[in-house]
């Protein structure tokens, strides 16, 4: 049943991405050429002024764009392998730091899948707009991944998640009802983002990017109020696990829809684990209910595995078959 739904979701995403791709490949891109005479000319300024050859910022080189997409895919595969197979948090933290350094501080938080929601919406509503293929790829890759293994993107790849993950100090348990109510903000934010992105070009606004709380930290510049919000949110995320991801991130909402069809994910199974509840205490995101991981809110941090006396480091593992044999392992 789940496989059938996943197949449907896959078909939808593939159709959507190919539509966007072909529209960008064969569509007429809107002319974006700043006439050279619009810039100050030597005759206006006089003196030794030389008109610069380049009148607009050069786009990022093709191969660097390819590198970004490849790194995104590689990081997601690495994260899901580390979490699902190795159940190892130490290496995951290294990947998180690397992602924060590259996608956050080096690439300055752009293009990110969260913001690309708006580009996709514009591409779907405005025939004049041609979406770059890299943006399409960056939007769909984490969703594809989530259809199979869950929110690996959130775990150690997303720079916004990474910066909150790394500052988390002493998480408080958010009451379940408050947690759910605040979680509804994501729908509001998603709806607002789509609404403003779908406006005609004169009124169009990319609210996700405009109110991205951490991008001013990545760029180390920006509006004073946004820097303030960023620092405030970081201070909050020292005590509340990833407030942006859990209560605001519209892309996280899309990903959590996709995880409904995932066949793999972080699992706390009764066979291998011992139901001691340490993992539920260790989860700062309230993603373990009744000692079982809730895939749609699991943010792939692997704290449950790190806190598990069974899979924890330096603890020898014992095959449970011996204890489960009919005579209780007696000779």
């Amino acid at each position: 049943m789940i496989a059938a739904w996943r197949f449907t979701a896959l078909v939808i995403t593939i159709l959507l991405s190919t539509t966007l791709w072909t529209s960008s490949a064969f569509g007429q891109p809107a002319p974006y050429d700043r006439p050279v005479d619009a810039a100050p000319q030597a005759k206006n300024i006089g003196g030794g002024y030389i008109t610069p050859e380049v009148q607009k910022p050069l786009p990022r080189s093709y191969w660097l764009e390819v590198l970004d997409v490849a790194l995104l895919a590689a990081a997601m595969i690495l994260v899901s392998w580390l979490v699902l197979r190795r159940r190892n948090r130490a290496w995951l933290l290294l990947v998180t730091i690397a992602s924060l350094a590259y996608f956050g501080f080096y690439r300055e938080g752009c293009v990110c899948p969260i913001g690309s929601i708006q580009n996709v919406v514009v591409a779907l509503t405005d025939p004049e707009y041609s979406i770059p293929i890299f943006v399409t790829a960056i939007f769909f890759l984490p969703l594809f991944m989530a259809l199979f293994v869950g929110r690996a993107f959130c775990g150690g790849v997303c720079p916004l998640g990474a910066i909150q993950e790394l500052v988390l100090l002493k998480p408080v348990r958010v009451p379940r009802r408050l947690d759910r109510t605040l979680g509804l903000l994501k729908y509001v934010y998603l709806a607002l983002a789509i609404w403003y992105a779908a406006q005609p070009i004169a009124d169009r606004d990319f609210v996700i990017c405009r109110f991205d709380p951490f991008v001013s930290i990545f760029r180390r510049t920006g509006f004073a109020h946004m820097i303030g919000i960023g620092i405030g949110l970081l201070a909050l995320s020292m005590f509340v696990g990833r407030p942006y991801c859990r209560y605001l991130c519209p892309y996280g909402e899309l990903l959590s829809w996709c995880t409904r069809f995932a066949s793999r994910g972080v699992t706390i199974t009764p066979d291998k684990e011992i139901d001691c509840g340490l993992c539920a205490d260790a989860c700062p995101y309230g993603a373990i209910e009744k000692n079982r991981a809730v895939r749609k809110s699991c943010l792939y941090c692997a704290r449950c595995y790190a806190s598990c006396p069974r899979t924890g480091p330096m603890v020898p593992t014992v095959r449970s078959e011996a204890a489960a044999s009919p005579d209780g392992g007696r000779s």
Binding site: I274, D275, P316, R319, A322, S331
Partner: peptide
Amino acid sequence: AGARQVTDELRRHLEIPEGAD
């Protein structure tokens, strides 16, 4: 109430080999 888990944990931490008691 979880006697299986208690037994498994004791076996593991006492390092009782497989098949022995």
